[in-house]
Design a binder for these strands. Sequence first.
RNA 1: GCCGAAGUGGCGGAAUUGGUAGACGCGCUGGAUUCAAAAUCCAGUUCCUUCGGGAGUGCGGGUUCGAUUCCCGCCUUCGGUACCA
Length: 954
Amino acid sequence: MDYQPRSIEQKWQQQWVKDKTYRVELDANRPKYYVLDMFPYPSGAGLHVGHPLGYIASDIYARYKRLRGFNVLHPMGYDAFGLPAEQYAIQTGVHPAKSTAANINRYREQLDNLGFSFDWDREVQTCDPNYYKWTQWIFIQLFEHYYDQTSGKAQPISDLQGIFTKQGNANVKAATAQETIFTAAEWQSMDEKAQSDVLMNYRLAYRTVTYVNWCEALGTVLANDEVKDGISERGGHPVERRPMLQWSLRITAYAERLLNDLNDLDWSDSMKKMQANWIGRSEGAQLFFEVEGSDHKIEIFTTRPDTIFGATFMVLAPEHDFVPDLTTPEQQKTIEEYIAYANTRSERDRMADVKEVTGAFTGSYAINPFNDAKVPIYIGDYVLKDYGTGAIMAVPSDDDRDNAFADKFGLEIIDVIDKSNYPGATRSDKLGIMINSLFLDGMEVPDAIEEMLQRIESIGLGKRQINYKLRDAIYSRQRYWGEPFPIVYDEKGVAHAMKLEDLPLELPDSEDFKPASGAQSPLARITDWVNLPDGWTRETDTMPGFAGSSWYFLRYMDANNSNAFASQEAVNYWQDVDLYIGGTEHAVGHLMYSRFWHKFLYDKGLVPTNEPFKRLVNQGMIQGVIESIFLEKKDPQTDLRIVEPAIAEKESAEGKTFVPIPVLVDYVTEYGLESSHLTQVGLDQFRAWRPEYADATFVSKSGTYQNGVFTASNGGPLKFATQSEVGKMSKSKYNVINPDDVVERYGADCFRMYEMFLGPIEQSKPWDTKGIDGVSKFLRKFWNLFIRNDQFTISEEAPTKAELKILHTAIKKVSDDIERLSFNTCVAAFMVATNELTKVKCNKRAILEEMVLLLAPFAVHLSEELWQRLGHEGSVHHASYPVFNEAYLKEDEVEYPISINGKKRATAVFAADASKSDMEAAAVAIPNIQKWIEGKTVRKIIVVPGRMINIVVG
RNA sequence: GCCGAAGUGGCGGAAUUGGUAGACGCGCUGGAUUCAAAAUCCAGUUCCUUCGGGAGUGCGGGUUCGAUUCCCGCCUUCGGUACCA
């Protein structure tokens, strides 16, 4: 009766589906627990062994909580709208709906293979109209609300219209782009279009012209978090800044709450820091500089009002509205040339040479409000249009960039801070004593900042202000495969939200999904869909990838509800996510947007909690080994074997350099692979293919490779040498390992436990099958505890004290470690217990039954099989967790390590209740210890009961 | 540059509150079993050693009876971020 994982696993997987074992219902009598995984984007490549790492961890935790009596919500779904499916469609002509459905099926098979306890009745797919109906609905809610700073929450736009009609906007404190103040009479005299334009400045979902990240290759705009290093995160295409009419979400209205509420979350510090950095709060002053000979007042933001006497010039962003007016005729040409130059620079170019400052003089001068000094006004692209006010006062003495700019243009530098008391302080540190600053002279910098803030406010020059790096989220995509906007425009171009009863607005089925050149969405070409009666038209952009994922965790609570995004009963019961497991790559995108939407729904009273994810854990990546092979040759001169690493070149500032490869291994024999598993990736370099990609043929300068034989063009013997490095698992590196293959060979229980055994869940580590045999051996050993003479045999005898100790040590260790998500040490604890039980030949029900329960969250199939063989009717996964009893761990005697000056020299066994003085005396008497004390004075003896004894001699 | 995390045997890693450093597993060595191999089982496995002992958790210092753990200063690696005024 050998352990046969595959047949056991298939049997139970089918049984669980039949019995709906993992179905979960709202049950007000039981406490809830919500364990969530970040749902996957179903890509064409399928799951590799890295994906399930987090899913296994969350599954173990969910099962543990279930055994502990919680009503556990543990769902799964698919983030199914988005760019990759569409890119694939464009390349192959396969409709995204088709390829997405096929990918989802494949993911489901792979997931099912691993024995997860998901309640599939709650599955969501973001591309399903029944789902995105509510994505559209939430968007409409955002559209129909504004952020009222007085009440500190979102309020209906209709309220705002009421206020405007009665009193204008002067007293409204709101997150808005509206600058002009109007009276009630003025509001009433506006036509519908004008009123709608004003309201747009208040709505949480609004449409306006903004500078956006335009990606020509993808034919769409991207959100800030979808752009990395000036290129698109998806595909790596160049991105440029461009003004376009776009939908945006006013996430900045929630910046302060998004920042403050991080404090109460059980997230890693680094994750909180990442979000805090992204929000980027800074305190300072907003103030105005007058311009000589002009009515314009330049508004600036500064965190260093103390340095204003050192402000020797000003810099505006090249796109700043005042630039044309401030440019003098003499400087016209220079400025135009500079703006043209700035426009040609892509984001990537700009980032590539950050150290290089560029700019141009407008010819105009501003007046320093505190000393009436005339300071020249420049433009420069190191000043960003959309941060602060797009204009700065430049203080070259205390800011590195301003300093570089002053150097380049030969501008005056006035020292205003004496840093001599602070050696090592850098230019931008807020340290030192004010000089050359009239009334500030002699003050410390922090005091000077406060003094200036007060003066600025008291003379009405400006006010204190808080600025955020966080920008509003650009919400339009000029793509096909996304949620259509539930927005229609009337003949005057006024945007109207669709009514709930008309939702979902389904994505029209079209084969014409390629992005258009220019900024037109593919939907714009489906004219009979776009054009409505009476000259009304539909919005043709679609929503971005983060739309559907910003609220999916709420839908799981009541996934099939057609009257609401989820019933209030369900939302009030399930509340929020207790444990959320997923990758760090979503640190600022998905996690920020979800928190924003959740807070908005909270303001509306639609969800009971202020934050969606109480505890967040980021699982590490499982990396692959990237194996490269080099040709090994004989050097004709020295007759030594050499490796020619023609491809191992490094590009650096000095040009290309070649790196010698130290490894000399005959790949073919060493790894037992066949040479047909090689493919050429460079002149003399090959990559090790997995068997499923076989059939390589190539011709190179060095020779010809065909049918597994390499013939060198210059004759001579050839071998392969390999070099390996650790990196991301990716199809292009031929290092993807499919979990199905591992499961086929070792079983799903072994795969699950091995992934956990690899190391801490939060750590990244390379996949390495070397250790899997250890886990496989353990499972067989555990199974064998139940087998005597090839028969399933269980003894009803009462357990011994020693056996109970083994069991309860395991119960304590495993449950403590599960609580702190330390699954690798859980597996070790199971191994220890199993080894010990094997040693004492224990097959008693009283012990093994509890062990099966303990193991159930990990080896989900094996434990179910054993549970049944032990004679139980229901599923082990609906049983209850073993109860730990401290009494079984109590020892009569304790072994103490005895140290001399902190170094262990001997051990001694004492009764558990031995007194300190007895132990001291006995310890000193031990011969081995005597030897060390001899000729020295015992100064002190420290006895930590139950722990150790330390003798201090001198 | 800034922010964050981490450096422990041949390898993955353990040590939860400052208390026996190296649990557990892989690998390796020796043995049993076998015609033989696989599998299994048993023993050993941080390094050095004159076999008394000595050294040892990235490096240098400090606090402590006692430091992988706390403090100060460095080094390295990996993530994040980047003209944010």
